[in-house]
Design a protein around this nucleic acid. Structure first.
Length: 484
RNA sequence: GGCGAAGUGGCCGAGUGGUCAGGCAGAGGUCUGCAAAACCUUGUACAGCGGUUCGAAUCCGCUCUUCGCCUCCA
């Protein structure tokens, strides 16, 4: 069974073959660190986290590079823009580097909580100024770029394929809808800046062959991807909104410099919308992850994201999140029940579930189907556990291995056994665990004596305290009542 | 104006030429001392209009609507 990936360049699913056997090189555009991460970041990085996990599952070594953009880029491409990181530094009355560091840490904190595995290499733009300068020099030498007044521009006319990713190959048409004033010093209106001269008072600036300045928006990705992954990389990922101009510019720069294809498979994830409109930092509707995590378990967010396909837009609403919370809790209930089950003699055939989940993932990482298979499996397992003969030790082990392989290791929506269930049972606190066990034992005694007034009182009072008790075949179990 | 997505049952959300997505919510039932859970049953879905086809929600055309990009954005 082979993996098919939807390639944005060409707009069709293609069979995946890595450039080098056994190794996948993957670059994903990272965040610009001038504010806390929001739900859009979560969707993007959860999606590519699962891509990396799946590639590893099918046997590849994955070298995953994700940059941190800590050079503040301008709010527009003309002269008038404001540097976002500098602006934030002024707002917070500190300097740009502190802003960058603060929000970088904040970003990883949130990504960690979402269970996103860290990329292998996370290079910063400021740490790779020499590499960017070297790339620009190469482009100037080959006449793909030119210097004007301390600025360096990429000459779009020198790269006939410019715009092939977004389909914006007609530059006159592109310019007809442009919303910013053109810079007259550019040879062609679509030319974009590789290096910008630092205006007076610009805080982040470096020496370059063209004077003091700072890199343009697009160069960092080309420079860092090439440095760590080579001139041709297997997978380049990012948000759809970056197709144009960012990714088209990356292609132009990289391919003009190397003469080789830059990326074999372009992957773009769709956007998060809130009540049907785009969520954006500039719009006031962005859902900040730190705020969201106060109300909703990060794992529920992860599950919510994986319930839709990465190429589909995801609409955020409280009701949708609540539905995910309940649904994921059900999966966790099944896992918990499995872990508590006493061995019987029944058998279990998992092959069809494995096959369905594997083919779903091989079909352009179809996580919604993978999740649905987990639900089907959950039902199947519950039926088996309900039977009087239960499941044999081997069958239980196979079931557990299935849920761990796909629910924990692949999708990351079922916590590992060593960690607490955050949705559902809380095993984090051993003392709480013990105390509730005592109460449940007392309740069990009361029930044996048919003292239901007492047993119900224990149950009701626990519920008031936020602990929900369920009587199962395996005995009473408890979960923390959901609070969404 | 240009480029590009998309419209699926009460809600979320897959799929795609001919038997099932899945989740949430609702209804009825089994089980249970009662709950809860679990399990069973239950939904005239595919924006509209034409066309292709033995057959279309799925392909084609048109219309309507929504969204994204063309300015930084995951």
């Amino acid at each position: 069974m082979s993996l098919f990936i939807y390639n944005s360049l060409g707009k069709r699913k293609e069979q995946f073959e890595s450039l080098y056997p056994g190794l996948v090189t993957m670059y994903v555009c990272g965040p610009t660190v001038y504010g806390h991460a929001h739900l859009g970041h979560a969707k993007s990085y959860v999606s590519f986290d699962v891509v990396a996990r799946w590639l590893r599952h099918i046997g590849f070594r994955v070298k995953y590079v994700q940059n941190i953009t800590d050079v503040g880029h301008l709010t527009d491409d003309g002269d008038e823009g404001e540097d976002k990181i500098e602006r934030q530094a002024r707002t917070e009355k500190t300097d740009p580097m502190e802003i960058a560091q603060l929000y970088t840490r904040s970003f990883y904190e949130d990504m960690d909580r979402l269970g996103i595995e860290r990329p292998n290499i996370a290079p910063t733009a400021t740490g790779h100024i020499p590499e960017q300068i070297a790339l620009i020099e190469k482009l100037i030498a080959s006449e793909h770029a030119y210097v004007v007044n301390g600025n360096v521009y990429f000459s779009v006319d020198s790269f006939p394929d410019y715009g092939k990713l977004s389909g914006r190959t007609d530059q006159d048409a592109v310019q007809s809808g442009i919303r910013v004033q053109l810079r007259s010093e550019k040879r062609s209106p679509s030319d974009f800046a590789l290096w910008k001269k630092a205006e007076a008072g610009h805080m982040m600036q470096w020496n370059s062959p063209w004077g003091r300045g700072y890199p343009g928006w697009h160069v960092e990705c080309s420079a860092m991807a090439t440095k760590y992954l080579g001139t041709t990389i297997d997978i380049h990922g990012g948000g759809m909104e970056n197709k144009f101009p960012h990714h088209d510019c990356e292609i132009a720069q990289s391919e003009a410099a190397s003469g080789k294809p830059f990326v074999r498979y372009w992957m773009h994830n769709n956007m998060v919308t809130v009540n049907g409109t785009k969520m954006g930092k500039s719009l006031k509707n962005s859902v900040n992850l730190k705020d969201l995590f106060k109300k909703v378990d990060p794992l529920v967010i992860r599950f919510f994201i994986l319930q839709s396909h990465y190429r589909s837009p995801l609409d955020y609403s409280e009701t949708a999140i609540r539905a995910s919370q309940t649904g994921l809790g059900k999966l966790h209930d099944t896992m918990r029940r499995l872990l508590q089950a006493k061995p019987g003699s029944g058998d279990l055939d998992l092959s069809s579930f494995t096959e369905r989940i594997e083919s779903a993932m091989n079909d352009d990482f179809n996580t919604p189907i993978a999740v649905s298979v987990l639900f089907d499996f959950s039902k199947f397992l519950n039926i088996a556990l309900d039977r009087t003969d239960g499941l044999s030790e081997t069958a239980l082990a196979h079931a557990k291995s299935f849920l761990v392989t796909y629910g924990t290791t692949l999708l990351g929506i079922i916590p590992p056994e060593s960690q607490p269930f955050t949705t559902g049972t809380v095993h984090a606190d051993n003392i709480l665990d013990d105390v509730i066990s005592i109460l449940l034992d007392m309740r069990a005694d009361a029930r044996i004596q048919k003292n239901f007034a007492l047993s119900d009182a224990i149950r009701d009072k626990l519920l008031e305290a936020g602990i929900e008790v369920k009587d199962t075949k395996e005995g009473a179990s408890w979960t923390r009542a959901s609070d969404v």
